[in-house]
Deep mutational scan, measured.
Amino acid sequence: MEVRTIKVFTTVDNINLHTQVVDMSMTYGQQFGPTYLDGADVTKIKPHNSHEGKTFYVLPNDDTLRVEAFEYYHTTDPSFLGRYMSALNHTKKWKYPQVNGLTSIKWADNNCYLATALLTLQQIELKFNPPALQDAYYRARAGEAANFCALILAYCNKTVGELGDVRETMSYLFQHANLDSCKRVLNVVCKTCGQQQTTLKGVEAVMYMGTLSYEQFKKGVQIPCTCGKQATKYLVQQESPFVMMSAPPAQYELKHGTFTCASEYTGNYQCGHYKHITSKETLYCIDGALLTKSSEYKGPITDVFYKENSYTTTIK
């Protein structure tokens, strides 16, 4: 009895394709271990004539594949690729409408935090270190965002349907971005203890939790000093293409032309909904596939993004 075979390709990165001759009487799992086709788990399936010449994702289970996976995804987590594939199996079914010149995501599976993050990423200057993220990001900007969303979920250790947080998501993504040249110098002034300067680099240099107003941050924000008295913390120097200011959701007025974009969060910790506000020729609110415009805006804002380049204080 002759062994019926077909020729397929296996890959971990969709760049390096490895030619395989597979036995049609055995499952993919018996031949390769966990195997995925377009995100779908085909591990328990036997090869079919229609699979001839198709590319299958496999887990990096030998040295060659491990090197290829690390170079593309910059992670050695053995569960990463499987999590990416199972997320992709959902995100490829989502709709990605162009809204006001940006790629958004039609609401499904509690994905409003991903839509808000995706919209924000198209408006701030950011370059990702893992080629996987950078490639998928370019495709997302062009309207094909399924891979990018699935990668975000995998890097953030999230599953489809789980509630997510924009600030946490951005923080994970910033860790995989090139923020080497970003720098922030802060000064804390206390009447009792004097003053202390701190220099922050990388992710810490672009994120701040405690106030939404970048102007206020430049002037000074009140913080408790270690001595128990009130101290003032203010920005001395900022070198970065953008800054992200966050605070627990509270009524906040966004003035046209003073910011790049913002995240609105309605609801409580267990259950809520994100919308995205962007400042173009007027203010726009993007909620999944829905767009509304207004000249002014007041609502429960939790993150505001500002364009920056270089700032030095005039406070002496």
Score class of each variant (00 low, 15 high):
residue 19 T to F: 09
residue 275 K to A: 12
residue 304 V to G: 00
residue 246 S to C: 08
residue 57 Y to R: 05
residue 45 I to E: 14
residue 115 A to I: 05
residue 120 T to Y: 04
residue 163 L to I: 00
residue 251 Q to G: 08
residue 34 P to Q: 11
residue 20 Q to P: 07
residue 297 Y to R: 01
residue 114 L to V: 09
residue 121 L to T: 11
residue 202 G to R: 05
residue 133 L to A: 02
residue 167 R to T: 03
residue 305 F to A: 00
residue 90 H to K: 13
residue 302 T to W: 02
residue 191 K to Y: 09
residue 122 Q to F: 04
residue 230 Q to H: 08
residue 50 S to L: 13
residue 11 T to K: 06
residue 242 F to V: 01
residue 91 T to I: 06
residue 80 F to P: 03
residue 149 C to A: 09
residue 133 L to N: 01
residue 275 K to N: 04
residue 140 A to G: 04
residue 138 Y to M: 15
residue 288 G to W: 02
residue 229 K to Q: 13
residue 82 G to W: 13
residue 228 G to C: 00
residue 163 L to G: 12
residue 217 F to R: 00
residue 209 M to V: 15
residue 256 H to W: 15
residue 66 R to T: 10
residue 286 I to M: 06
residue 76 T to E: 09
residue 221 V to E: 06
residue 174 F to W: 05
residue 113 Y to E: 03
residue 263 S to F: 01
residue 301 I to V: 10
residue 107 W to C: 05
residue 222 Q to N: 11
residue 245 M to E: 01
residue 128 F to C: 04
residue 311 Y to D: 07
residue 116 T to A: 12
residue 224 P to C: 11
residue 262 A to Y: 00
residue 277 I to R: 00
residue 144 E to F: 08
residue 290 L to E: 15
residue 97 P to A: 10
residue 223 I to P: 00
residue 63 D to K: 07
residue 75 T to I: 10
residue 311 Y to R: 08
residue 172 Y to M: 11
residue 251 Q to T: 12
residue 140 A to Q: 03
residue 162 E to V: 04
residue 276 H to E: 00
residue 4 R to C: 14
residue 38 D to M: 09
residue 22 V to C: 13
residue 193 C to S: 03
residue 223 I to M: 09
residue 246 S to F: 03
residue 266 T to I: 10
residue 51 H to S: 06
residue 2 E to C: 12
residue 276 H to Y: 07
residue 39 G to C: 15
residue 308 E to V: 12
residue 230 Q to T: 14
residue 272 G to F: 00
residue 153 L to R: 00
residue 158 K to E: 01
residue 162 E to G: 06
residue 39 G to M: 09
residue 158 K to N: 03
residue 51 H to C: 07
residue 222 Q to A: 09
residue 19 T to W: 13
residue 121 L to Y: 03
residue 214 Y to G: 01
residue 274 Y to F: 12
residue 241 P to T: 09
residue 137 Y to M: 12
residue 241 P to G: 09
residue 253 E to L: 08
residue 62 D to Y: 06
residue 102 L to K: 05
residue 94 W to Q: 04
residue 169 T to D: 03
residue 79 S to D: 15
residue 75 T to N: 12
residue 57 Y to M: 14
residue 259 F to S: 01
residue 81 L to R: 05
residue 222 Q to C: 10
residue 34 P to A: 10
residue 176 H to N: 07
residue 117 A to D: 02
residue 59 L to A: 11
residue 64 T to N: 13
residue 99 V to E: 07
residue 54 K to W: 13
residue 311 Y to H: 13
residue 216 Q to R: 09
residue 5 T to G: 10
residue 216 Q to W: 03
residue 103 T to G: 04
residue 104 S to Q: 05
residue 54 K to D: 11
residue 310 S to R: 15
residue 56 F to Y: 09
residue 190 C to T: 00
residue 245 M to Q: 00
residue 293 K to C: 14
residue 107 W to T: 02
residue 169 T to V: 12
residue 53 G to A: 14
residue 259 F to D: 00
residue 220 G to I: 01
residue 155 Y to A: 03
residue 69 A to K: 02
residue 140 A to T: 10
residue 8 V to K: 04
residue 14 N to M: 13
residue 147 N to P: 13
residue 25 S to I: 09
residue 170 M to V: 06
residue 274 Y to R: 02
residue 246 S to P: 00
residue 201 K to Q: 11
residue 299 G to R: 06
residue 86 S to V: 12
residue 304 V to E: 00
residue 60 P to V: 06
residue 222 Q to Y: 09
residue 308 E to A: 07
residue 122 Q to A: 02
residue 77 D to K: 05
residue 58 V to K: 07
residue 106 K to R: 08
residue 3 V to F: 14
residue 220 G to S: 05
residue 94 W to F: 02
residue 93 K to H: 15
residue 130 P to Y: 00
residue 180 D to K: 09
residue 75 T to Q: 09
residue 266 T to W: 06
residue 100 N to S: 14
residue 272 G to P: 01
residue 104 S to F: 05
residue 130 P to R: 04
residue 29 G to F: 09
residue 89 N to M: 08
residue 115 A to R: 02
residue 178 N to I: 01
residue 82 G to D: 15
residue 127 K to T: 13
residue 163 L to A: 14
residue 24 M to A: 15
residue 56 F to S: 04
residue 266 T to L: 10
residue 301 I to H: 00
residue 112 C to K: 04
residue 163 L to H: 10
residue 293 K to I: 09
residue 241 P to N: 07
residue 117 A to Q: 01
residue 56 F to T: 05
residue 259 F to C: 00
residue 112 C to I: 04
residue 291 L to W: 15
residue 151 L to N: 02
residue 154 A to K: 00
residue 17 L to A: 09
residue 132 A to N: 05
residue 221 V to P: 01
residue 287 D to K: 00
residue 90 H to Q: 14
residue 9 F to K: 10
residue 303 D to R: 00
residue 143 G to W: 02
residue 269 Y to I: 15
residue 262 A to W: 02
residue 53 G to Y: 12
residue 267 G to K: 07
residue 254 L to R: 00
residue 138 Y to K: 15
residue 268 N to C: 10
residue 224 P to W: 11
residue 77 D to L: 05
residue 196 Q to P: 02
residue 164 G to K: 03
residue 269 Y to V: 15
residue 132 A to D: 03
residue 260 T to I: 15
residue 299 G to V: 04
residue 165 D to F: 06
residue 61 N to C: 15
residue 17 L to C: 08
residue 121 L to E: 02
residue 314 T to L: 15
residue 77 D to S: 10
residue 286 I to E: 00
residue 76 T to R: 10
residue 57 Y to H: 12
residue 44 K to P: 13
residue 102 L to A: 07
residue 263 S to M: 08
residue 65 L to D: 07
residue 85 M to R: 06
residue 243 V to A: 01
residue 71 E to P: 02
